[in-house]
């Protein structure tokens, strides 16, 4: 479903991604972990071209998104994204946040978009917040709305960029629970995260990145019980025995 070949990304002189090869199948719940600066977020941003890849190929449903004639806006409708800092639209209420893209981009009727929005609000447990503005919500609520907003486009895959890193500890669970439900329903997900428990228990695949490269691509249980590389051992030692 997503296929990445020899992806490189430079920021000026800085070589951030150094030849990533990765294939994601439908239904994969892939956790991407690694130290900060290892290129995890950049990789995610390249997949929907929020960052322009410098070299290599990315195919989404066999369509080369680096091709000149690729309609990236059409691709992005299939690839949802959830951000660390939520990025809800502060001048729109919750319902408008969710219905905006479906009505504007997918040309869904307002009634239909609102019906979907209420279903999604119900799913993330925030039906009573339809007319609230983002500034009135807690971090956990904002992130659940952001997930609902991504789901409203009915994407084939959702990219999560550290979805719980900006949350108070108490609010992390409510967001992870929503993500857990999505995983159970078979949604394809790529999750950059520092939540090792979540990576271990919910993901069915784990990618460990360091220094712009994929160091390990394995099953979560194997990774946590018997990491192969020294770099992964060192990383796990630091994050698990803090």
């Amino acid at each position: 479903m997503i296929k990445i070949n020899n992806l490189h990304k430079y920021f000026g002189e800085l070589h951030v991604l150094k030849g990533i090869d990765l294939e994601v199948k439908q239904g994969d719940v892939t956790a991407i972990i690694g130290p900060s600066g290892s290129g995890k977020s950049t990789l995610l941003h390249c997949i929907n071209k929020l960052e322009e890849p410098s070299q290599g190929h990315i195919y989404i449903d066999n369509e080369d998104i680096m091709a000149q004639d690729c309609d990236i806006n059409a691709i992005r409708q299939k690839v949802g994204m959830v951000f660390q800092h939520f990025n809800l639209f502060p001048h729109k209420n919750v319902l408008e946040n969710i219905t905006l893209a479906p009505t504007l981009v997918k040309k869904v009727t307002k009634d239909e978009a609102e019906k979907t929005a209420y279903e999604l609000l119900n799913k993330v447990g925030l039906s009573d917040k339809a007319f609230s503005y983002p500034s009135k919500l807690s971090g956990g609520q904002k992130q659940r709305i952001a997930i609902a907003r991504a789901l409203a486009m009915k994407p084939e895959v959702i990219l999560f960029d550290e979805p719980t890193s900006a949350l108070d500890p108490e609010m992390i669970k409510e967001v992870l629970d929503v993500m857990k439900d999505l995983a159970k329903e078979g949604m394809t997900m790529l999750i950059v995260t520092h939540e090792m428990g979540f990576a271990k228990n919910v993901a069915n695949r784990l990618i460990f990145m360091d220094n712009g490269m994929v160091v390990e691509d394995t099953e979560p249980n194997l990774f946590f019980s018997a990491p192969k590389s020294d770099r992964a051992k060192e990383f796990l030692d630091k994050v698990l025995n803090k």
Binding site: L50, Q77, F83, L100, A101, V105, M153
Partner: peptide, 15 residues
């Protein structure tokens, strides 16, 4: 404005 606003809008498929 926060750069994330444009990113979120573009990520949703808006031109």
């Amino acid at each position: 404005l926060d750069k994330g606003q444009m990113e979120a809008a573009r990520a949703l498929g808006m031109s």
